[in-house]
Computed example of a mutant assay.
Amino acid sequence: MEAGIFITGTDTGIGKTVVTAGLVAALQQQGYNIGAMKPFQSGAVESNGRLLAPDLEFLLKTTELVADGYDLMNPVRLKPPLAPSVAAEVEGVEVDIDEVESAYNSLQQQYQSLIVEGAGGLMVPLAENFLIPDLIKLFSLPVVVVARPNLGTINHTVLTVKVARQLGLEIIGVIINGLKEEEAGLAEETNPELIEELVDIPVLGIVPYREAIGDDPEEVDLGKLIIENVDLEPVIEYLD
């Protein structure tokens, strides 16, 4: 396997980017030369005549990553907030997987290891006959699954892990993200143990919700948040 990990999720909008940025920041704080990649960004926004990737912009604000190599970190940017394959069809462009692989290989030469963030959930189509699992296999990376904390997450997480395994992917563990501690009930308390029992992989940590992340992400030390709430040892095993 390559040095690094791939971040996927049980759904869209569950904080994969927050977890990705937090892991990058945490590992940078511990002295690792960590790079990041968001190969596919739909819902890109235009600013000053340039198309920007919101997820990559968040990473640049909250980690020590710099904008040099922007097109390597995010080779595919599409405006429609749709599955990348659909967004590309709407825009009338063809996704070049070879270009994505070339960008990945270039980044691998620059960093000790990479944290790569997917798009949406596990079975999102990126190009014709090319889904997220195909990208993970192309990059030869193990997977961390990001899940939400509340009711329904057991079903989504178990399905994601079981399908990933059936497709031959290696799963490191699950990170539960966005726990609102003041609202947590019995479901939030029991979900982690049940997930571990049902799929026999560890829940690496539970990341609490922080409202400031959405309002002013630069004011939140995401690295510290991850270090305090996530077991990084299983991830570090895949960095060299």
Rank of each mutant, 00 (worst) to 15 (best):
A127I: 08
E128N: 13
E128V: 13
F130D: 08
F130S: 02
L131K: 11
I132Q: 09
I136A: 06
K137L: 08
K137M: 12
L138A: 13
L138F: 13
F139P: 10
S140A: 15
L141T: 03
P142H: 09
V143Q: 03
V143F: 07
V144Y: 01
V144M: 09
V145A: 07
V145N: 03
R148N: 11
R148E: 13
P149C: 08
P149A: 01
P149M: 00
N150V: 02
L151T: 03
L151P: 12
L151K: 06
G152S: 11
T153F: 09
N155P: 01
N155R: 07
H156L: 14
H156T: 08
T157W: 07
V161Y: 00
V163G: 05
A164V: 04
A164G: 11
R165K: 15
R165D: 11
R165Y: 09
R165T: 05
G168P: 15
I172F: 11
V174Y: 06
I175N: 06
I175W: 12
L179N: 04
L179P: 04
L179R: 07
E181V: 10
E181C: 04
E182Q: 08
E182C: 10
A184H: 06
A184M: 01
G185W: 11
G185N: 10
L186K: 11
L186G: 12
L186Y: 10
E188C: 07
E189V: 01
T190I: 13
T190M: 15
N191V: 11
N191W: 10
P192I: 01
L194C: 09
I195A: 02
I195V: 09
E196K: 05
E196P: 10
L198C: 08
V199N: 01
D200F: 05
I201N: 10
I201F: 12
I201V: 14
I201Y: 11
P202R: 03
P202F: 01
G205I: 00
I206L: 14
I206H: 05
V207I: 05
P208A: 04
P208N: 09
Y209Q: 02
Y209S: 08
R210E: 13
R210K: 14
E211P: 00
A212L: 13
A212Y: 04
I213E: 00
D215F: 04
D215N: 10
D216C: 08
D216P: 08
P217R: 01
E219Y: 14
V220E: 00
D221L: 02
G223T: 00
I226E: 01
I227F: 05
I227K: 10
I227T: 06
E228M: 14
V230P: 04
